[in-house]
Amino acid sequence: MDKVADFRNDLAVALRIALLRIRGQMQYRASFWMQIVGNFFVNIAEVLVTWSLFQHFDNLGGWSLEEVILLHGLAMVTFSLGDTLSNGVQSVPQMIREGTFDRNLVRPMSVYLQSVVSEVSARHFGHLTQGVLLLGIGLATAPIEWSVGRIAYLPVIILSGTAFFTALFTVEAIFAFWTVNGVEAVNAFTYGGSDLGQYPLHIFRRGLRLIFLWLVPIGFMTYYPALYLLDRADPLGLPRAASFVAPLAALLFCLVIRFGWRAALRRYTSTGS
């Protein structure tokens, strides 16, 4: 019970820290907005290329532009929310290098939550805005038979995906406790994963599909839920329930990452680097 109370307190403190820091940053208005705008543009190239390709090609694995845009939106919204929430955790490698990580260990508060709020930035709001726009366009233009179930499931998809990406970004920090040099490999899963989640899963090769379904379950976060929204059959032959495992897969993934984070902390306290 103690632990639950501790966690609730930590969460409240973390929220307080985050809000204060965002308010602090908004005082530097020019820089604040430039980062958001810059972030809006950084991923737009990919979307423009997708659109251009659809001017030359009929479809992508049987999916129309509107349907692919819906996937783009889902992946981008959840990715950028996770990116925002894990911003501080992503700076853990840098904190370790600079020796400032220690302070998270000498305070009576969850080390993870302290890391989360050690770097708070609003810059991912640009990416988020773009995701929301795409998702909006996708939802409005793709052939969706709206029903209560579909409307109710949409927030679940977003929440699961956000939790999933937050955990996924933590992997990078976890790796950094072992090697500072190899961290780039994690990009294949974070950025690679979010890129892959923007396209219909069945167009990829078996190897990639297995990785991004069963190891890093991005496929269960965007593609399968989208199959339900679009009322499409799964060419890969998984049961229809696959469209609804998003929350469960996200939870499992978070638990695995939590385990990894703890191991990483144990390693840090035994090597100090």
Partner: peptide
């Protein structure tokens, strides 16, 4: 190395620590 939050006024850092502890 400071234990305080870089971008916050000192008083806010201290008040946050009140809640942390």
């Amino acid at each position: 190395r400071t234990q305080l939050w870089w971008d916050l006024p000192l008083i806010e850092s201290l008040e946050l620590l009140q809640h942390v502890y």
